[in-house]
Structures are given as C-alpha cells and as structure tokens.
Simulated assay, not measured.
Amino acid sequence: MQRPKRAVRGATLNTESSRFNLPAREADGDWLDDRASLDDLPPPLRTTVTVERPRTIITHNNSPDVPFDRSVNAYRGCEHGCIYCFARPTHAFHDLSPGLDFESKLFAKPDAPALLRAELMKPSYRVAPIAMGTNTDPYQPIERIWRITRQCIEVLAETQHPLMITTKSDRVLDDIEMLAAMAVDGLVSVMVSITSLDPRIAMTVEPRAPSPRRRLIAVEKLAAAGVPVQVSIAPVIPAITDGEMEHILEAAANAGARRASFIPVRLPFEVAPLFRAWLDEHFPDRAGKVMSMIQSIRGGRDNDPGFGTRMRGSGPWYDLMLTRFRIGCTRHGLNGERVKLRTDLFRPSEGAQMRLF
C-alpha cells in the first residue's frame, strides 16, 4: 500500500468557483512560476492576513443538525489546511479560491470583541450558548499573534455567558486558566477534533494542524482542569481513517474526555473537486474506492446537503460506522452524561449606563 505524501498545504490546487464566476488562477510569468521546472520545487506560498471589519459578529442559524443557534468566528479562512473543510466555499464570497487561497489568504476580525460586547448589551438579546470554531478554527496559528479568540472569551467570561469551543489545536491551552474558571460555573465545554492518530495520515489530511499527540495532551490537561471535554472524530474518511475509530475512542477516554461524536466526510460545493484532486495526489491507489464509499454514504452523490441528514449518512457503510461507534463509546464509558451549560448567570456589560439592581 502506497504511503501518503507529506503535504505542505492541504489543497493541491487553486480552483475557481463555479457559483460566483471566480476567474481561474493562472501563472503570471515571473521566475517563481518557473521554479518547478528549474529545481523541482513549487513556488513558495506565503500566508497573508487581511483585516475584516464586519458590522456584527454573532451569526445565527436555525439548523437542526447542530446543537447551537449562534456562533462567533474571529477569522475567515484557516491555515490548518484540512482538505475536507466544509467552510472552504465561503472564500468564494471574497472572490478568492476555496483551494489554496482559503488556507493562505486569511482574514482577521480585530473588532470582534467590541462587537460581541455591544451585541450582548442589546435589550433584545436572549442568552444561549455561543459556539466558536464552527466555521474556521479559533485557535489556528494566527491566534498566537492576533489573540482575537482570547479577547472574545474574556468578554464571555466577564458577562458569564455560556460558550462552546471546537478546535483541532492544543493552542486552546493558552486560555486554560480562563476556561477552567468558567467551567466551575458550568459555562464552557470544549470539543477537540481528532481525525487520525497516525502522524503521517494527520499531516497529510490536516497539514498545518497540531499533531494528534498534542491534541490528546490538550484533552488530558483540559479534563484535569475541570473543563468538560468531548472528542469529535470528524470527519471519518472511508478507507483512510475509518479503521481508527475504536483506537481514537479509547485514546479519548483515557485522556479524560466525557463524550465523543463522529461525522462522515462531507464534500459540499467546491470541496468535492479539491478532495478528488487531493486523493489523486496522495492516495492514488484507493481514490476510486474512497469516492465510491462516500457516495454510498451520501445517497449516490458526493454530498448530501439536506438538513437533518447532512451530518449523518445512510446505507450499509454508515450503519457499520454507527454500530462501531456506539460499541466503542459503551466500552470506554463515553456519552454517559450530557453537559448542559448554564444560562441563568448571564450579566451583560453595564456600559455607560449603570445597572439599577
């Protein structure tokens, strides 16, 4: 069996968007474009960050597929470069490619903490858990510099607002003291995504995300600090990572995770051709098998976009995954209790007007 190649970036190309008439990326003729023919090296791809100034920061949804109705995203695009990322198509709204642009041309929202505070102060606001990490990772590498995620958490901690975090990064430990303090009052839970325990597989599927070992250490430290932790095996890629499900569940339980979940790989919009090109590059020996199994799970298509079914699947392959997952959770004592975050402690910032009571 051919071993996967080490990936420097996730996507292997910069596709145009078929929905927004995004022009195809072409070589501009400078010496960097000839680098491959001169010394067998691709042109260097540098990460850039552009400041984005949104008017609001809380995004609302009414999806039956997720356990929250609002979220905050401090960044647009993600340097982790996960090839399967369902958020890739959002870059097309900026006339950028869901491919390499998504993981190298990033946007930061430094006004997010102030916007969040202002929205929480509105008389019409009704408290419910806010999710972070639903579109792109709040702890991707640029968080070390920008610290926007941390500043947003500071606002939520100050106002005693419930928070749900999803991340693939052990950088969440940078904020462990604040999260531990919120956990004492039942205000926070963290979900750590672990797709594979094999370092070679992980660095191919998620080239710039921290290693599986570092993520498990993060689970262990968060659990030891009293923060409720869940491990998400998301996504499960048939014929590449699906054989690791039981091992990931065991490792998660041993690290102190209370709950676990899984989602079969989703390939919405422009993600499907990017994923196919990635398969041809890194797993040519089984590319056809992988896509055949995905289509079996997704009703004969590359993706099922339907509300109520898109996060799950159907057919014998999905049924087998689900059975294995349930047996693994039972064996390792996972999912025995639900974490319910408190909403009764919420106190919005006073601003210029002092509270009467």
Rank of each mutant, 00 (worst) to 15 (best):
D28P: 04
E16H: 12
G29Y: 05
R9V: 00
R6T: 02
S17D: 01
T12I: 08
F20P: 03
L38W: 10
L22M: 11
A11R: 02
E26A: 10
N14E: 09
D33C: 05
S17K: 03
R6D: 00
L22P: 10
L22E: 04
F20E: 06
A7C: 07
P23K: 01
S37C: 09
R19L: 14
E16W: 08
R19T: 15
V8E: 07
F20H: 06
L13W: 04
D28N: 11
A36D: 14
N21D: 07
L13I: 00
D28T: 13
R6H: 03
S37P: 03
R25W: 15
R25S: 12
A36Q: 14
G10A: 00
A11L: 03
V8Q: 06
L22T: 13
A11E: 00
A11F: 05
V8T: 08
R35I: 01
D34K: 14
E16K: 13
F20Y: 12
T15C: 07
V8R: 08
R19W: 15
T15W: 02
A27K: 12
L32M: 08
R6Q: 04
L38Y: 11
E26V: 13
V8F: 11
N14F: 08
L32R: 09
L22Q: 15
G29C: 05
P23Y: 04
S37K: 12
A24W: 07
T15R: 07
A11Y: 02
N14C: 14
L13N: 02
A36M: 15
E26Y: 11
R6Y: 00
R35A: 02
T15Q: 05
A36E: 14
V8N: 06
S18F: 15
S37N: 12
D28M: 12
R25E: 05
S18Q: 15
L13G: 03
R9P: 00
D33W: 13
R25T: 12
E16Q: 13
D28C: 06
T15L: 09
A24N: 11
L13Q: 03
R6I: 01
L32C: 06
D33Q: 06
D33L: 09
E16A: 12
D34Q: 12
L38A: 15
R9I: 01
N21V: 10
V8G: 01
S18T: 15
A27C: 09
A24E: 13
A27W: 10
R19N: 11
A27F: 10
L32K: 12
F20I: 11
E26I: 10
L38M: 14
F20D: 04
S37G: 07
T15M: 03
L22R: 08
F20S: 07
D28R: 13
A7Q: 06
R6F: 01
N21A: 12
N21R: 15
L13R: 11
A7M: 03
L32S: 04
R25V: 14
R35W: 02
S17T: 02
R25D: 07
A27H: 09
A27L: 09
R25F: 13
E26L: 13
